[in-house]
């Protein structure tokens, strides 16, 4: 289980996360819904250790991990796909996928095994393997970013607005990939952020709402 306990985070002098507490069970899928500027990206960056905590703590299976540096999170099995893909433009798709597996020190056989795993889960990728990361379309890039997160994200995967900017056909494609992921990798906990939950409703077990840095079970926007 991954738990945030009264997490407070400052960005640029502003308190962006205000006593955020929620938990994701192993193998469960959660969507975090909030409008622009609500703090979705900040929540995921905090989970990846990119922002220092002002207060509160983060626990992974009961263990306090808020002191594990950002580069240590991948080794804990946490994978992250940022909202703007951010692939390494000079590397081809396969190099982009393999890089995190190399960085956490997996041996060649294990890297190969995970790569084949990701390729079978995301059948769009094998055809792109030699394409430079900088030459992909938006939809292809999102798929590669998902694959890259899955290479190390064996326990939790965080996807930041994956449907943002995707044409409907591509979004359906991506949604299919996610439901395949849910079926075939049942023990991966998934946290997806979205500004509207339309594409992920059928995939997720749980919906959370974030509004001005506060996370709750209720859709405060709709209640108003």
């Amino acid at each position: 289980m991954l738990e945030l306990d009264t997490v407070r985070v400052n960005v640029g002098g502003f308190l962006v996360l205000r006593d955020v507490s929620f938990a994701i069970d192993a193998g469960a899928a959660t969507v975090l819904v909030g409008r622009n500027g609500a703090g979705k990206t900040t929540t995921l960056r905090t989970l990846m250790g990119l922002l220092p905590l002002e207060g509160g703590t983060i626990r992974l299976d009961g263990r306090d991990i808020h002191r594990v540096p950002a580069h240590g999170r991948a080794a804990l099995g946490m994978g992250y796909a940022p909202e703007d893909r951010r692939l390494i433009g000079d590397f081809n798709v396969e190099e982009n996928l393999l890089l995190p597996a190399q960085a956490i020190g997996l041996n060649a056989a294990e890297r190969r095994r995970r790569l084949e795993d990701v390729y079978s889960l995301l059948p769009e990728l094998p055809g792109l393997r030699t394409r430079p990361g900088g030459s992909l379309s938006g939809g292809q890039g999102k798929m590669v970013a998902l694959g890259r997160a899955l290479m190390v994200g064996t326990s939790y995967v965080f996807l930041d607005e994956p449907f943002q900017g995707l044409a409907p056909a591509l979004a359906k494609n991506y949604a299919r990939a996610l439901s395949r992921l849910r079926r075939e990798k049942e023990d991966i906990g998934l946290l997806v952020t979205e500004s509207s939950p339309q594409y992920v409703e059928e995939i997720v077990d749980h919906t959370l709402y974030i509004e001005r840095g506060e996370v709750g079970e209720r859709d405060t926007l709709q209640v108003e």
């Binding site: 990846m48 990119l50 540096p69 580069h71 991948a74 390494i88 433009g89 890089l99 960085a103």
Partner: peptide, 24 residues
């Protein structure tokens, strides 16, 4: 080399390099 690839990644995007597990 592996360290060379890490260098390229860090130059391109420090934050993403970290989330990929690279000790910047």
């Amino acid at each position: 080399t592996m360290i060379g690839k890490f260098i390229v990644a860090v130059v391109a995007d420090r934050e993403i390099a970290q989330t990929m597990g690279i000790n910047t």
